[in-house]
Design a binder for these strands. Structure first.
Ligand SMILES: [Zn+2]
Ligand SMILES: [Zn+2]
Ligand SMILES: [Zn+2]
Ligand SMILES: [Zn+2]
Lengths: 132, 132
DNA sequence: TTGTAAATGTTATATTATTACATAGTGTTA
DNA sequence: TAACACTATGTAATAATATAACATTTACAA
């Protein structure tokens, strides 16, 4: 059973915006969009983003410095994430594949390192862009 | 047979610095370190970094905005990269594991997307930090 | 030797993210 | 309730990361 997090005012405003967006959003584009709701400073956005990432409601797409809502309710609090990114239209989807996540969660190399978290980003062309 | 790239002056200066570093280097730390060699502006650093990434001599650690030399001569021009990152001491190693790279290169999900590239970052504690 | 692509130099600016400090709300427990 | 700890907010300033625009030079092949 996952812990229930009651989002604060700013967190809710920012999560709702990201959640209803069809594409990853960047911090300053979020800021621009929530100014009418009284969020005026970058820090207010970054603080909410940090918290939302921490509790697993959103993920950061590292290669794009952008944020998307978690599309995978079983996502273990952002500890195991995989995305597909179209290099043409920049569409991003969260990959939910049990085999893949098991494979990666159990991966151990020779370096003797114990992994607690991973992030995987695949790049290519989405179906739509491929057929153009 | 891999194409031979003759590095230009700036590319060589910057590659040498990254290559002999024991940790990932950030762009502005590189800039600071090469100013005595006549490289004065961020853009000169970023241009060399872009080229070095493109030809696979270095990789960008996306979660850290930092660069390390490729430790894996068979790395297919930065198209398939995996790293282990210690969250305590920030040590980064490039993972060279044939099974893993085969698994990921052949991965195809249901979305019908053809991947041409991936980047994987594992996080955890390195051997040294684990035993502290 | 001339054309072309790659690389360089320089200035300015855009984008992304954090530090520092003051204040306010929320929930728990004495 | 009062005291406390913890989380969240507001605001200003600034740090860190990255790119745009333009002029010039170098490498090198046709
Ligand atoms: Zn998720
Ligand atoms: Zn696409
Ligand atoms: Zn490599
Ligand atoms: Zn370590």
């Amino acid at each position: 059973m996952q812990k229930q997090h009651n989002l604060s005012k700013n967190q809710k405003i920012i999560f709702d915006l990201i959640d209803k967006s069809s594409e990853p959003l960047k911090a300053y584009s979020i800021l621009f969009n929530v100014q009418k709701k009284g969020i005026n400073a970058p820090l207010q956005v970054y603080r909410a983003l940090d918290k939302l990432v921490e509790i697993g409601k959103i993920h950061k797409i590292e290669s794009r410095n952008a944020f998307i809502a978690c599309q995978n309710s079983s996502c273990q609090i952002s500890k195991a994430t995989a995305f597909s990114i179209c290099e043409s239209c920049e569409k991003v989807s969260e990959i939910s594949n049990t085999k893949l996540s098991k494979y990666l969660s159990n991966f151990a190399d020779e370096a003797g390192m114990k992994y607690s978290k991973y992030n995987l980003e695949f790049f290519g062309l989405c179906k739509k862009c491929k057929s153009k």
